[in-house]
Amino acid sequence: MTRLLEARGLDVLLGDYQVLWEARCAVAAGEIVALLGPNGAGKSTLMNSLSGLLRPRAGDVLFDGHAITGLPAHRRVSQGISHVLERRRLFPYLTVRQNVWLGAYAREARADRETQYQKMIELFPIISARANQLAHTLSGGEQQMVALARGLMSRPRLLMIDEPFLGLAPLIVEQLVEVIRRVNQDGVTILFIEQNVERALSIASRGYILESGRTILDGPSSELLHSAEVRRIFLGG
């Protein structure tokens, strides 16, 4: 198993408050991996440390075998890491087209911009239908599609998505799951955060479970689904 991404021993502070305690996770090339945990466990904090928005106080992040722990977020994009933030976070007063277009801002991505944009339209037809609409006027589901397209414009090797299904109708969720699978089949490794254990583990082949800032459990989806520990954390029983 060649590891595309690996994080170990991450201690991360937000202000004076330590959120992560020796958190870890690893993703192999080609995998779909889920990051699970109750509210406030530190899932987003971990992902933000992987993309470089946060700097850990201790620990290492390795991408493709190289340490990237000190690399700022904007330079990790060119390495092949893409991160779709919690709650979509589109640029509200830019158009859909401008939002998606900016996904390929990094110099390495600019050459393929037009072809990649066409691919995104194929994947999400709403992009061409709403091209000139301001992003903040879209519905939640539409925003998530645009956010995913924007994240894929840089042709990443690793796509990290923070709670892609939050607040969306079942039909839209199904569509998005379909897209995520397709993207993965095209060779993009995926790490995503999701609160719903069953849903998460039906999409992912492996999962990591965070509780109070610590990685307490990891393994294949089938194992986690039947683990008593998982039942304790998520069902309170």
Partner: peptide, 24 residues
């Protein structure tokens, strides 16, 4: 312009902008 859009993006959401590869 590309740079102008990057400026606007940074103004609207600096974290999301950094994740586009923009040096904020």
């Amino acid at each position: 312009s590309e740079t102008g859009l990057a400026l606007q993006a940074t103004a609207q959401d600096r974290h999301a902008a950094a994740l586009m590869g923009i040096d904020t």
